[in-house]
Simulated assay, not measured.
Amino acid sequence: MALDQQTSLSEAETDTVLARHETGVLSLARDDEPYAIPISYGYDADDRRFYLRLVSTPGSEKRQFLSSDPRVRLVVYENDDGVYRSVVAVGRLEEIPRSELTVEHVEQYGEAKRPLFEIWGESRQDLDIQLYQLAPDGLSGRSVEVDDASEST
């Protein structure tokens, strides 16, 4: 399988990819230790901002990483008829305390899909749901086409 040259996505193309999906992989780091999890997100193309509901238990590994205020990467990707696209957002998560929720926040979280990844060993009352937003320092998209004619069988 031969790959054609990788190209950058325009802002509009990047926004389209992000709007088309609702899940990605969120990566956090603390010291030299990485942590990556699948997440659901909402995306506001006007503000180029992500909205996330992260569910954890008080002593969980996820909670430990989040409390260290790490830089994060959110990766969203797709394969559509031989065209691979990926978008990477880099920045810091900002927790939105429930006491500071605005009407705009409520609208955005209403647009964000319910977390699709809810596999927990604990009962629901032990789960902690925290709201975050990510206004990325960097947001980039890439695309590459696969030349199917060169594939061998």
Score class of each variant (00 low, 15 high):
M1E: 10
A2Q: 12
L3D: 01
L3V: 11
L3G: 11
L9M: 15
E11V: 15
E13Q: 15
T16M: 14
R20T: 11
L26E: 01
S27H: 00
S27E: 02
L28P: 03
D31T: 02
D32P: 00
D32Q: 03
Y35F: 15
I37C: 14
I39V: 14
Y43K: 11
D44P: 03
A45M: 09
A45T: 05
D46R: 05
D47C: 10
R49D: 03
L52Y: 02
L54T: 02
P58K: 13
G59R: 03
K62M: 13
Q64L: 11
P70G: 09
R71E: 14
V72W: 00
R73K: 09
L74I: 09
L74S: 08
V75Y: 01
V76M: 12
Y77G: 12
D81C: 08
D81K: 09
G82L: 14
R85W: 05
V87P: 01
V87Y: 03
A89M: 14
A89F: 06
R92Y: 05
E95V: 13
P97E: 00
H105Q: 00
E107R: 15
E107T: 10
G110K: 10
E111S: 12
E111F: 05
E111H: 11
R114M: 08
L116V: 10
L116S: 11
F117G: 04
I119N: 07
I119L: 11
R124M: 12
L127D: 05
L131E: 02
L134G: 10
D137H: 07
G138T: 14
G141F: 11
G141K: 09
S143W: 02
V144L: 10
E145V: 10
D147Y: 06
D147H: 11
D147F: 13
A149G: 08
A149Q: 08
A149V: 00
S152N: 10
